[in-house]
């Protein structure tokens, strides 16, 4: 597709502009804010959130929602930590950990498709299930001391004077793969079509059911992978890990310009959405005097502004293409 200034890119541009503005504000007001390492830290601290948000983008693009992602992260971290504790090799542990999300995803996606259930309720159930299962494994924190995990957690990849972590590399690979998936594969385009108009997608002969199940499987996989990355970051398994993270992921996707009703949005937007959340947090850290809860207030305000903006632009869009209804 030609990259002309198409109207559909407006939300993406606004998000990006907002990110730049916030960064400039920080650079002007706080010394040391403009260091490239601050930007790289955004990626390091939020690598897992980027991965989750990528999966969530596909779900929301299709018009659904996935509330289970935070709990799946916790469950993945618990399974990983407890298996390592039992002296099982990471070569076996990691594949098992990566299967948790997809399995849950297939089940949730199938329920949503075959029984025509609300994604909200199905994934809410999945959220409780995964969170509960992590407590069944243990109510205590399980620390991880395996050398491979220590290596993954502590290795710094130097870029000149600055560095990133291995997790950032994983996140970048996921983002690139997701962009390819979204724009250059049938699956990706089917996701957009279903989100745009599920009935039409069906009448156009697209495999709606299969795609929907795959979407939740993909989101499950992203959650598990994020869970692994989160485990590298925390070096522990704990049932309370990533509590409420699903809401951060949804916020990042929406701030990233994806329409909650589906059909419109970009993976890249969600990445910027995560970075915006990160910048808010960094700003508040640099400010020093503000309670960290101000992060939540700022996110709330931003989210509200974006939803209103989306509504306004979609109302305008609809009035233009409004079809005459059948008597």
């Amino acid at each position: 597709m030609s990259w002309q200034l198409n109207k559909k890119y407006y939300p993406l541009l606004i998000t990006f502009g907002l990110f730049i503005l916030m960064f400039l504000y920080g650079s002007i007001n706080y010394t040391g804010f403009s260091s490239p390492q601050v930007v790289l830290n955004l990626f390091i601290d939020n690598a897992f959130l980027i991965i989750v948000a990528v999966g969530m983008t596909f779900v929301i693009l299709s018009g659904g929602i996935d509330l289970s992602v935070g709990s799946v992260i916790a469950l993945t971290s618990m399974v990983t930590a407890s298996l390592l504790q039992a002296n099982i090799s990471p070569i076996i542990v990691i594949p098992i950990a990566l299967l948790i999300g997809p399995i849950l995803g297939v089940i949730m996606g199938s329920l949503i498709h075959f029984y025509n259930l609300q994604p909200f309720i199905v994934t809410l159930a999945g959220m409780f299930l995964a969170r509960g299962l992590s407590y069944v494994i243990s109510v205590e924190t399980i620390a991880i001391s395996h050398p491979f995990f220590q290596f993954m957690a502590n290795t710094k990849i130097h870029l000149g004077n600055f560095y990133i972590s291995i997790s950032v590399l994983i996140a970048i690979v996921v983002v690139v793969a997701a962009i390819f998936l979204a724009h250059y594969t049938k699956f990706g385009r089917n996701v957009y079509a279903i989100g745009g108009n599920e009935q039409s997608a069906l009448l156009m002969g697209l495999p709606v059911g299969k795609t929907k199940i795959l979407i939740y499987t993909l989101s499950g996989f992203c959650s598990s992978l994020a869970g692994l990355v989160f485990t590298f970051y925390m070096l522990s398994g704990y049932g309370l890990h990533a509590n409420g993270l699903e809401l951060d992921a949804i916020a990042a996707v929406v701030i990233g310009g994806t329409l909650l009703t589906g059909g419109i949005g970009y993976v890249a937007g969600s990445v910027i959405g995560v970075l915006i959340l990160g910048v808010i947090q960094t700003l508040i850290v640099f400010e020093g005097t503000l309670s960290s809860w101000w992060t939540k207030i700022a996110i709330g305000v931003l989210l509200l502004l974006f939803i209103v903006f989306q509504r306004l632009s979609s109302v305008r869009g609809r009035s233009k293409t409004g079809l005459i209804s059948e008597h």
């Binding site: 049938k186 957009y192 002969g205 059909g263 079809l323």
Partner: peptide
């Protein structure tokens, strides 16, 4: 062609014509 145009208005014209039968070359659209 149904009464109320049953296409996806969020997708481009070209996609609406081809979706489901995209031209795939070297594994990509």
């Amino acid at each position: 062609v149904y009464q109320e145009v049953n296409l996806c208005s969020n997708l481009s014209v070209v996609e609406n014509i081809f979706i489901g039968r995209e031209i795939i070359k070297r594994g990509r659209i």
